[in-house]
Every structure is written in C-alpha cells, then in structure tokens.
Design a protein around this nucleic acid. Structure first.
Lengths: 207, 207
DNA sequence: CTAAAAATGGAATGTCCAATCCAAAACTGG
DNA sequence: CCAGTTTTGGATTGGACATTCCATTTTTAG
C-alpha cells in the first residue's frame, strides 16, 4: 500500500495544468515584488486572471500556494543556474557565474534580493513547512556549487575542502544579495563575490 | 526656521517614556519571534500590557512602530556589539567575536536569524523608510567592523583593503545567519565565519 | 454519445485587525 | 492648588482579506 502523504488533487487536465501554472507564476512574481505578506489572494486572482474557485481548486489555502511558489523558485532559480554551476570547475567558470549574478542584480535595479532567500527569511519563523522547503532549495543550490569545486579538488587543483567552500560561497552570495537589496547598490555583492573568488584562488595551485 | 520632518510627539513624561519603551521592546521581541507581518497590534498590546490609546498615542501607526523597532534593534544589536568590535584589531579579537556569534545562535536554537537582517528582508520591498533605516544600521555595523581592521592595516599587519574586508565579513555573517536560521543548524554560520577568519589571516603578515 | 469528473464564475461570509473616538484619570508647571 | 497637558481605558468602526458555496460549463473516458 502506498502512503499518500500529499493531498495532491488527483487528476490534472492539460488545461488544469496550465491554469495552475499561471497561478503559481503570477504568485511567484507578486511575492518576489511585494513579499508574501504583501501579496493577497485577490492580487493573485487579478494577476493570473483567475477566479476564487480556481485558486482554491488548485490550492487548499494560501500556505499551499506559498509552498508551490517555493518549489517553482527552486526550479526556476536553482534549476536555471545549474548549467552555469556545472562550469564551476575552474576559476574562469566561477568568474563567469559571479559576473552573471552581479549583472542580474543590476538589471533588477537591486530590487527583490534572492527569490529563495527572501521567502526563507520571511517565512522561517511562521511556517515550518515553508522553512523546510527553502532548506531543500538551499541544499540543492549548495550541491550545484559543490560539484564543480569537487572536480577541481579531485584534479588536485583545489586544496581547500569543497564542502565547506561551497557552503561559504552560498552564504556570501546570500549576504551579498541582502546588503545589495537593502542598500539598493550592487557594490556589496560585487565586493563580496570578488572576495570569494580571491578566497578560492588562494586555495588553488597553479594550472 | 527649523523644518520639522519628524512628527515627534513633543513632550514625553518619565512615565510616558517608560510606556513607550515597554511597547517598543515588546514589539521588538514579538517581531523577532514571529516577523512583522506575524505580529498584530493586539499582540503588542497584550505583551506590553498597554491599551489601544497608548499604542496610538506614542506611534502614529504600525509603520511608525516598526521604525522604532528598527532603531531599537540598531541600538541593541549593533550598539551592544561595539565593545567587542573595538577589539577586532587582531585575529584573536576576530576569533572571539565569531565564537560569540556562533554561541549566541546556539543559545537561540538557531531561531530568528539576524534581528536586523530579518527586518530588512521582510520590509525592503514594501516600506521604503524601513529599508533606509535598516540600511543605516548595516552601515553602522560595517563601520564598527572596519575600525579594527583599519587599525591592523595602518599597523602594517593587514595587506587587504579594510573597507572591502569589513563589507565582506558583514555579508558573510548575514548569509551565514540566514542559512543557519533556515536549516536550524549552526554549522553554516560556523563554517562561513571560519572561512572569513581564514581569509583575513591569508592577508595578514606575521606579527 | 453519454455519464462522470474536472474546471470555472462570481457572489457571499465571517474573521481578523488596524485605526478611531470619547471620555476620564494622572501628572506637570507655575 | 489650579489650569493645562499628558496619559490611559476600552468600546467601536470600517475595511481588508482568506475562504466557502452553489451553480454552470467544459473536458475526459469508455
């Protein structure tokens, strides 16, 4: 017998799937722009061009929608970066990734911070499920970073512990993003990531 | 003529000052525990043993109370750390500070994250005044860290730029705190701060 | 083609909560 | 001690917002 832990709404038509997606991505955008508390179900309804029935047909309540948004950002943000993370097995790849992150913040005018970190910070103390979901997203992200570093390590180019290094880089990124968001200035992110590159280089032996 | 930018409630009796303080510190604790959105004025009323009249006598609205809480945490958290930050002019002092931060998180069972960073993350996109206030608190914090590093630099013990280093350390601390909060595990903070110490040491010439 | 299941429309409900108001009490300065 | 100011009590209000409900339309599967 299979234990049904998830109250998944059974079947989902193609159309249903589309509507659900429309709701989730609209909610994700709104929550990125205005925070979870700053986003009402009415806002989501309007942005997704949906009705109350639709919202509550696909999601039991707002919390369920929030969980779906976290999963969505996990896929979008972390998943979307994985190709680039796969090239983190060289200083060159690391530089490319950092440049991308800084450039992305410039594009956003330093608004919103990290889509995942922001959700985590806002929900950690009020929604245990959300906290765990964000935790999972961070683990996946960390794992992506670790992959390349591990390769460098196994090739003997990196002397430091790839595990610790990956965790440090993710933390520095999160902190840099937060300061950049608060100050509305990319400088903190630039300096912090630059220091991380420096830090990795310091533990690298010449090619 | 003096421009009155602040709608400060003019005179404040000793008793009034006490009541105000009681409200702010109760609100600060609640907002640390449950977030701003998760804290209602009723909660504050109950915790501070105050009435509606009192809340709205001392604060125009919830946003004004939030600003007061940010100022309070600025004093409490950053101000409270300044004695320790003053000793950041040696690796020894840096280690002591980091140990304190980690130990503090252990005491809190990794709950709440950074009292200032959390407020910033939650409010940055919805309350411009709050964002600026948090920005100020971070600048003060950064300045505190920078002081000691600058001393080391001027003594010729530190080769790296104290400005950039201070910013990096603050970012790493914030990121480490966030990950520690989300994962409910001090490990991320420990590893990250440890890497920062390592990073500073790498730019230090022997005594 | 038809019955069951899924998707949708849209009004309605009830709760929560920030903010207001009218007095009354306590305190301050002269 | 007295007039003015500050502080407090506590009921009330008005709106925002999550959620529910019932009817209707659309889609799926056999």
């Amino acid at each position: 017998m299979t234990t049904r832990t998830e109250p998944s709404p059974a079947k989902l038509t193609r159309k249903g799937e589309q509507t659900r997606q429309r709701i989730v991505s609209a909610a994700a955008q709104l929550m990125f722009d205005n925070g979870v508390a700053g986003t009402t179900m009415e806002d989501v309804k309007a942005a997704a061009q949906a009705s109350s029935s639709q919202l509550y047909h696909y999601f039991a309540d707002k919390q369920a929608l929030v969980l779906a948004v976290i999963a969505y950002q996990n896929e979008t943000v972390v998943g979307g970066q994985e190709p680039m993370l796969a090239r983190l097995d060289s200083i060159e790849g690391l530089r490319t990734w950092c440049d991308f992150l800084v450039q992305h913040q410039r594009t956003l005018e330093c608004r919103g911070g990290c889509p995942i970190g922001s959700l985590g910070g806002e929900l950690a103390e009020t929604d245990a499920k959300a906290r765990v979901a964000v935790s999972g997203a961070f683990l996946r992200w960390e794992s992506g970073i670790r992959g390349g570093l591990r390769a460098m390590h196994e090739r003997g180019e990196l002397t430091a512990d790839p595990e610790d290094l990956a965790l440090t880089i993710l933390a520095a990124l999160q902190g840099g993003l937060l300061l950049t968001q608060i100050h509305r200035d990319v400088h903190p992110l630039e300096v912090t990531l630059s220091a991380m590159i420096d830090h990795v280089v310091a533990h690298t032996v010449r090619a």
